[in-house]
Simulated assay, not measured.
Amino acid sequence: MGGVAEYAALLAAGLAAAGRDVHVLCPDSPQPVRAQFTVHPELGDFSPARLRRCGELLDQSPAPRYIQLQWVPHGYGRRAMNIEFCRWIRERVRRHGDLLDLMVHEPGYELFRSWKTAVPAIVHRAMLRILLDAARCVRVSTTAWIARLQPLTTRALPFEWAPIPSLVPAAAAPDAVSRIRARYGSPLTGYFGPYHEPYASLLAPVLERLPGPVLLIGRGGDRFAGPSSRVAATGSLPLADLSCHIAACDVMLHLYPDGVDTRRSTAMASLAHGRALVTTEGRFTESVWRESGAVMLVPPGHPDAAAAAVIRLLEDEPERLRLGEAARRLHAGRFDIVHTVRSICESS
């Protein structure tokens, strides 16, 4: 489940640190050993037999049992249309007395967006109706999801905004940061985010307009790196190296077709590392991004504006430092996982 799995591990560690007995049910994919909580790789292919086994594991714990379901439809098998899993969750609530907190990372495909996704979009709505029928509260990664979810239930459910925090611990070693800057040059512009479409079409024209050096961080950036040293790519990096490369950049660039929002963990990583950040403002962008004064916003699909914003920050060190400190405070004060952990603990 990619970033959702990383978020779940971060949340589980936070809840365990708060004194909760945490058990994580997950598929058979290899997981690192976590000393803080117990991992049960029993979900497998989400078959009825696997769900029965998971039910037996849940019944071994005393009631009340609080289920923190991390929802993205593509994470539960059956080609993202596993209605039976949703029914099983509802039965756990109705027959076994479990309490369900639903965390919606992504609600699923939008209706009428494409004929290719019409059937999955209908099924995703049906799956959410079942889960909303069982939930006691709903958390959303971005406020944009609330309008998508409310029409799917007649219940007076509480909806809570629970931003996705940085999934890259800010633990950059100063010596490593210095070596990176010496290797690539400075002032250094970094990009950290997806490299596939539609992001690639936003990134390519901005790269053409930026002065060097530019560092493309993470897997996939090599397709944009040329033989010259102006644009370089790191490839896939372990978390510690990822932190060092983000910290080595003077300005971070994040381009999203629908605008930055609080489910974008790549942008959150730059905030947590105190980097000056240039990003896009679109239909999903919450007001906090503009009101905080912690980022520089540009419209998506306007490469001249994005490049000009980056160049302005590269040339204005006081403003760059101000934005970086504001970014760090914004993440700590509004987006850090401690806020979601506190909310869960207060309600259970």
Rank of each mutant, 00 (worst) to 15 (best):
L152Q: 03
T143M: 13
T153K: 01
V123W: 07
A134S: 00
T153H: 08
L128T: 04
T142S: 15
V123H: 04
T153A: 06
T153L: 04
S141R: 04
R155D: 03
R129D: 05
R136C: 12
R136S: 07
P151E: 12
Q150F: 08
P151H: 12
I146S: 05
L149S: 08
L131Y: 01
V140R: 08
V138R: 02
C137I: 08
P151L: 10
R136D: 03
R155N: 06
I146M: 13
A126N: 04
A134F: 01
I146Q: 14
C137D: 15
A126D: 11
R129C: 02
A135S: 05
L152Y: 05
T154D: 15
R136N: 05
A147Y: 06
R148F: 11
R148S: 11
D133Y: 07
R136I: 12
M127W: 03
T143P: 10
T142A: 14
W145Y: 14
V138M: 06
R125I: 07
L128C: 09
C137V: 13
A147H: 11
T153Q: 04
L128K: 02
R155W: 08
P151R: 09
L131A: 02
V140G: 09
S141L: 13
P151N: 11
I130H: 00
A134T: 00
L128P: 10
T142R: 07
L128H: 03
L128W: 06
T154Y: 09
A147S: 15
A135E: 00
T154C: 09
L152S: 03
C137Q: 15
V138E: 00
L132D: 03
L152C: 02
L132M: 06
T153E: 07
R155P: 08
W145N: 10
W145R: 04
S141E: 11
R148I: 02
A147I: 03
R139W: 15
R148E: 14
D133C: 01
R139D: 13
A126Q: 13
R129G: 02
A144P: 08
L152V: 01
A147L: 05
L128D: 06
R139M: 13
W145M: 05
I130Q: 01
D133S: 14
